[in-house]
């Protein structure tokens, strides 16, 4: 079943078409990687899928409903969560508070002015589960700003998971990580595979081909090929446009 259906999406900045008639379909349950050279429009695509940026034209359908005009908050409620290429957390809050705030977003009203939120067991328990899922259970009390880069990347993932998404948009989750940190994150994504549908943007080709069920190749704002990792590796157009010497 198709979970995400993008049709003929367009976004231009002046004469520059960053998204140029892009179509994409993501099936429920799959890990769908999007690769492409720098400047291909990957982050702009994520921004449009998550509602951070409005497309000029085209439609985004999610679970059968047209969400093209919805803002970020509504899309999160519909089940579409994202992580950021550049770590976007609350530095002064602890890891637990970062995640609990995401849990709170989908657990009743936030116009509550009296009861201490730190003692809401329901929020903390769910947040701890998410932290444990990404291997940060023993870091719960640490301020996000004081964590290592790799831990921050793990926390990004925990915060997104706390939204209980049907679809997780991952914008370069391995960005800036060292080999050991990357290994941890790849392990986490592999464990999540099948549990939640994922759209993964990543530069680390080793990770992409190890994780993805399907790969789409984005070049100059268009998807030039979509298929299994094996098929993409062999696609002559892809080799010419992007993989180049790296895959040879």
């Amino acid at each position: 079943m198709t979970l995400l259906q993008v049709e003929n999406l367009r976004k231009s900045y002046g004469a520059l078409a960053v998204t140029d008639g892009l179509s994409l379909s993501v099936a429920e349950g799959e890990l769908h990687a999007i690769i492409g050279p720098n400047g291909a429009g990957k982050t702009t695509l994520i921004a449009q899928l998550s509602g951070q940026l409005a497309p000029d034209s085209g439609t985004v359908r999610f679970g059968g409903a047209d969400i093209t005009r919805l803002d970020m908050a509504s899309r999160v409620r519909a089940g579409l969560a994202r992580s950021f290429q550049i770590t976007t957390l609350m530095p002064a809050m602890t890891a637990l508070e970062n995640v609990a705030l995401a849990v709170q977003g989908r657990s009743g009203s936030s116009f509550r002015f009296w009861r201490p939120v730190a003692r809401e067991a329901a929020l903390n328990d769910q947040a701890m589960d998410c932290l444990a899922q990404v291997g940060l259970a023993d870091r719960a009390g640490r301020p996000a700003g004081a964590m290592s880069h790799g831990e921050k990347r793990q926390l990004e993932l925990a915060v997104a998971l706390a939204c209980r998404p049907r679809l997780l948009l991952l914008d370069e989750p391995l960005a800036g990580t060292g080999p050991q940190e990357a290994e941890v994150l790849v392990g986490l994504l592999a464990a999540l595979r099948g549990e939640v549908t994922m759209v993964l943007i990543e530069h680390d080709m080793e990770a992409v081909f190890a994780l993805a069920d399907r790969v789409s190749v984005l070049v100059y704002g268009q998807i030039i090929a979509s298929g299994t990792p094996g098929a993409i590796r062999q696609d002559p157009a892809v080799r010419a446009a992007y993989l180049g010497e790296e895959a040879c």
Binding site: S50, Q52, D71, M72, A73, V76, A81, R82, F84, T88, L89, M90, P91, A92, M93, E97, A100, L101, Q104, S109, S110, F111, R112, F113, W114, R115, P116, V117, E120, V159, A160
Partner: peptide, 19 residues
């Protein structure tokens, strides 16, 4: 309370709050 944590969240990162 819940409200305060949300307010602090908007101080720390508006984009993250939206996300």
């Amino acid at each position: 309370a819940r409200f305060g944590r949300v307010l602090i969240g908007t101080r720390e990162s508006e984009l993250r709050m939206r996300a």
